[in-house]
Amino acid sequence: MWDGNLATVIVVTSGKGGVGKTTTSASFATGLAQRGYRTVVIDFDVGLRNLDLIMGCERRVVYDFINIINGEANLNQALIRDKRVENLHVLPASQTRDKEALTKEGVERVLNELRQNFEYIVCDSPAGIERGALMALYFADEALVVTNPEVSSVRDSDRILGILASRSRRAEQGEAPVKEHLVLARYAPERADRGDMLSVEDVLEILGIPLLGVIPESSTVLQSSNAGVPVILEDGSDAGAAYGDLVDRFLGKNLPHRFITTQKKGFLKRLFGGG
C-alpha cells in the first residue's frame, strides 16, 4: 500500500510571468509519469487557466480545483487522465472563480487526498506573489525556480527564493527548508558567448541555488504548445531532451548539462534545421 506521507509536493514558480512555468510544469510532470511515477499536475492560476491547453486536455475539463475545494465535485470527477502517458493526471484551474476561493485549508485538504494516490504532486504557480502564487508554494517540499537569463526574471526569482525561505509551511513550522532547484529556461548559448546574455554561471552566481537544468531557447516549445503536446514528448527536440535530462537529474541521475555551449552546426543541419 502506498504511504501518502512519502508523496512529494513540488512547486514550479518564478515570480515573473512568461518565463516558462507552465511549459516546465507540463514537461516535468509528464517526464516523471513517463518514468513510472504516479504524478498529478495542478494549475494554481485561478481565473487564467492555461495548463490544460499546454497539456492538450482543454476540451475534457468538466470540474476544476475550486470545485473540489468547495466540495462541488470529488477528485475522481475532476482529475483528467492523460491519454498519452500512463500515471499522469491533470487538475485544471477554475476560470470563473476569483482567487479568494483558494483557501489554505481547502488546498491542504485536496493535497492530502492527492497524497494518497500520487507520488509526485506538481503545483504550477501563477506569476506574481499574490494569493495563488503563495498557495502554490506554501505546501511545497521542493521548488523548481524557473528563470530566464534576463535581469527582471533573475531579480524576481531571488524574491521568490526569499518567500520560499520565509513564508512556506516548512519555514513557518521550522522544518527543513524547501529544496530549491534552478531551471534556466530560454537560454541561448551563442548570445551568452557574445556577451549579450547573462551566462549560466552568472545566474548561478547571483541566485546561489543548485542548477537542475538549462532549457535552450527553441522554436519547438511554441510548436508543441500550439499542438497541446508537452515539449518533453517531442522527439529530436533540444528543449525536449533538456527536460528529459532535468527529470532524470531530479530523480538522482548525475548527468552533464547539455545545450549550454555553442554548437557548431554542420552544413546539412544548417540546411535542414534541427532542434
Binding site: V151, R155, A192, R194, G195, D196, M197, L198, S199, E205
Partner: peptide, 10 residues
C-alpha cells in the same frame, strides 16, 4: 558587454 553590465546591476 551588456551581460556583464546586467550581472553587475543584478
Amino acid at each position: 558587454s551588456s551581460a556583464a553590465l546586467a550581472k553587475e546591476r543584478l
